[in-house]
Amino acid sequence: MDPKSHGKKSTGWKQIYSSSTIFVLPAALLVLVVIAYPFVTAIWISFTNKTVAGPPPNFIGLRNYWTCIQRSDFWQTFFNTMIFASGTLLLSLLLGLALGLALNQVKKLRDFIGAIILLPWIVPTVISTLVWLWMFNPFAGVLNYIFTASGLSEQPISWLGLPRLAMISVIVVSAWRNIPYFGVITLAGIKQIPHQLFEASQIDGANAFQRFVYVTVPALKGVLFVYSTLVFVQTAYDFALIYILTRGGPVGSTEVLSVKSFMTAFETGQMGLGAAVPLFAFPLFAPWVMIVTRRMITQWAGGAV
């Protein structure tokens, strides 16, 4: 259908425009109430000295952000967040890609296997994280049982008690949740690639690795970029996983912005400062997310995902 052919009758366009507005309105209102209002409120609170049940807050400009910068533990929290999100993304991306490629080779029961693999992503974070907490238990956990019984370690390992190991452990749990997501996205992406491309490259003598590098990866680049961004931002603000596993410890080595924000706002009652903590990363993420959103809209408008 050529839209230009309708352009001759302006009333038709108006009708389409007004009816589309009506259809979009409920969703737009929902977004305003559920996303925009809390977000704008959080920004406003971050510019005030609001405390829980305290006197009416005063506007204090950027003082909360300045306090963040000046506090000795804030930068550690910020870098922890970046390491946690980057580590999760990298591990999820690599293993998710491998999983997607493996799934593509499966001929029988692919849907069933795909559904089973998606379970970690479907199970509520709190439940799956509690299971991991038991697995990490220093003396009763299955991980230490395997390590000590197989002779890999003489002593039980303190998975969540040593800074680097604790960070690796939380990244592994976070990636474990995201790998199936990337796997399924990869599989869906591969299915979109025209089969002729693979056949042509095969005729040209490309081996499996070359086909992966020169056909699969370029075709998946767009979709993986979009989902990588979403996973990175989502992980950077993940709260439940870290709070349950380590509460930000040991010695703040896994304390991320969301945990710091909760502890500041709820456990010490400083709502203004607590709101400023996660918003600190907002200027970093916002342009990236805007680019991705634009790209997604362009792709969808073009008919590709």
Binding site: P250, M263, E267, T268
Partner: peptide, 23 residues
């Protein structure tokens, strides 16, 4: 006080053990 609550809830004191043993 609010500050004492923050010292307590931010684990300022118990973090010293980690600072010595693991850092």
């Amino acid at each position: 006080s609010a500050a004492t609550a923050e010292v307590n809830n931010s684990y300022v004191i118990v973090d010293m053990i980690g600072d010595v043993l693991v850092r």
